[in-house]
């Protein structure tokens, strides 16, 4: 039987399909549909040091083959996360990644440091740093659009934590490779590419943007070609593994990202439409490997000619 297992720097995942932050709640919401343990790894919704109420509604608007969101990082805050959500997530039996967002470098560092104190530092398998949310003044994107700030932030978290660090980058930059290299130089273990693309939808009759925040983050199949290009570019230009994310709807999309150079992927928006999407994707990935006569899905990574 062909193997779907992948290595991502220091991480070993049983399969390459992770659930993207912000599209999975904290796992419990998905339990009516599947065992969250089937993913290669799960990534919780962004946690900030203090609770955040999020943005006003409407928070989403559908666009052609995609959607804009302006959720605004609503979350219960770090303390409530540790107390009310983390224990349940740990029981799922797959890699657990905690996604962190902060207003300041110190906030990221404090959360990373405090996670080292929970269960002797074994409570989570990795940290994902959200330096890329386009929907908040304090969404981390101010770090992710500047190589120096990216490097400094990753270095500081690196010094505070022994956990593998995933840096989740924004595509809303001129030169993503320079940001990716800065994260690598700062000590990141994995690069997550990418967060949503800043976009806008207008109701021209009302002369008004549909989202109260005016702009939002575009996700869904509309962005897949854009993300794929960035993943391909960064995978060639950096030495640490890349996780591809952006508009993946099925196993063919997963294979495209792997061929482009990603060692694993995250699925997001598809789960809003098909909450059991991961089950179909994993079955199809197995079938593809059998059809191709491959023993391991890692044989596909970076095989673009």
């Amino acid at each position: 039987m062909p193997s779907l297992a992948v290595t991502l720097g220091p991480l070993r995942a049983k399969n390459p399909v992770f659930s993207a932050s912000g599209t999975f709640g904290y796992g419990e919401e998905m339990e009516p549909f599947l065992n969250p343990g089937v993913y290669g790894g799960i990534i919780g919704k962004s946690i900030s040091i203090k609770p955040r109420g999020g943005n006003p509604t409407p928070r989403v608007v559908e666009t052609a083959s995609g959607m804009l969101n302006s959720i605004g990082l609503q979350n219960p805050g770090f303390d409530a996360f540790l107390r009310d959500y983390l224990p349940r997530m740990r029981g799922y039996g797959t890699l657990l990644v905690v996604n962190l967002v902060g207003d300041t470098v110190d906030e990221y560092v404090e959360m990373a440091r405090r996670l080292e104190e929970v269960e002797g530092g074994e409570a989570v398998d990795a940290l994902e740093l959200n330096i890329s949310c386009p929907n908040c003044p304090q969404g981390g994107m101010e770090f992710g659009i500047d190589p120096k700030a990216t490097r400094l932030l990753v270095e500081r978290v690196r010094a505070a934590s022994r956990k593998p660090i995933l840096a989740k980058l924004t595509p809303n930059v001129t030169d993503i490779v320079s940001i990716a290299r800065a994260a690598e130089d700062g000590g990141a273990d994995v690069l997550t590419l990418t967060n949503t693309f800043v976009g806008m939808a207008i109701d021209w009759r009302k002369r008004q943007a549909i989202l109260p925040a005016r702009t939002g983050g575009l996700s869904g199949p509309a962005i897949k070609p854009l993300s794929l290009r960035l993943v391909w570019q960064v995978a060639r230009g950096c030495n640490i593994p890349v996780m591809g994310i952006g508009g993946i709807m099925n196993a063919d999309d997963v294979m495209d990202f792997l061929v482009a150079g990603a060692r694993a992927v995250q699925i997001g928006t598809v789960q809003f439409v098909r909450p059991r999407a991961v089950l179909e994707i994993l079955e199809d990935l197995h079938r593809f490997l059998e059809e191709e006569g491959l023993d391991s899905i890692e044989q596909v990574v970076g095989t673009i000619k």
């Binding site: 912000g22 599209t23 999975f24 709640g25 919401e29 998905m30 009516p32 549909f33 919704k45 109420g53 999020g54 509604t57 409407p58 928070r59 989403v60 608007v61 959607m67 969101n69 959720i71 609503q74 928006t269 789960q271 809003f272 439409v273 909450p275």
Partner: peptide, 28 residues
Amino acid sequence: EARMACGFGICFACVVPIQKSLGGAYYN
């Protein structure tokens, strides 16, 4: 009613401010 993306709690789009109990603070 509110605009939804998913319908089962993972997207956090369809929120409304609610008190946990009478007289309490409002949460989305």
